[in-house]
Design a protein around this nucleic acid. Structure first.
Lengths: 130, 130
DNA sequence: TTTATATTAGTAATTGTTCCGAATATTGTT
DNA sequence: AACAATATTCGGAACAATTACTAATATAAA
């Protein structure tokens, strides 16, 4: 099945590329419904899923009851604030040798790995102090 | 609020301790309903939540649409089979220096981290080959 | 054995996501 | 430009996992 272009999908991807906030489907819906008054959540989810299949978007399915999404598809790790739920991309180099170690230990095939760091972000730390 | 003992809760913890399968709430329910014919899912979820508060159980909330649970509370990483969904505990040493590196990079406070490795388990690899 | 309250079963409600069908938009062809 | 083929949309219904509620029951302590 081929893909036809869609204004909604283009804007979803554009929004994801220009925000660092790793938004939820609902956030995208709220942002775009002014632009597309008859927008529906089905459209958001379907397009996120298509963009993911195309390798342009990644789903972040941890640290929350709902999924979040990002268009930064270069390998990187995440920091999650335990207070406000913010997700930050980290610059920490990706440690591929860990995958080798797991393969040596288990003799299983490892395709990828993920690291999430949990703590308190600077903004929440500042609020806490006050 | 203090905790009174509950046969249901005791058995949930015991089951979790003696299985390596990182089961779902539903799996626990199916296993225990012979023993407690009037068991309800609410009881499973409530007790898992209490056991988690007590630090006896950890929720595994990634890689699936439903939560899974474990009673192995010593720090360790996970391997998730992309084919059958099995979760395996890894022996890989926990790399606490990564948390320091993140703190140096971001000047945020890191409390913990998690690593998940994704790949194909031995059982699924064998099936695939045949 | 009385009292206080944590726990349970059963069910209803909630949440996030997926699925569906009829209408619309996009693309390629004549 | 008109047409056919089909991907996409909207809107709402359906769904699955979890949480919330209430009356009845179990536990612990006095």
């Amino acid at each position: 099945m081929l893909y036809k272009k869609s204004k909604q999908r283009d804007r979803i991807l554009e929004l994801l590329k220009t925000t660092g906030s790793h938004p939820s489907a609902d956030w995208l819906y709220e942002k775009l419904k002014a632009e597309f008054p008859r927008l529906s959540m089905g459209t958001i989810y379907r397009n996120l899923s298509i963009l993911e299949k195309q390798g342009l978007v990644k789903k972040i399915d941890f640290g929350s009851t709902y999924d979040r999404f990002e268009a930064n598809i270069t390998p990187h790790y995440h920091f999650i604030c335990e207070v406000c739920g913010a997700i930050k991309d980290l610059e920490l180099p990706v440690e591929y040798q860990l995958e080798k170690k797991v393969e040596e230990e288990t003799h299983m095939t490892v395709h990828k790995h993920r690291i999430e760091f949990f703590g308190i972000c600077n903004a929440c730390m500042a609020k806490k102090g006050s």
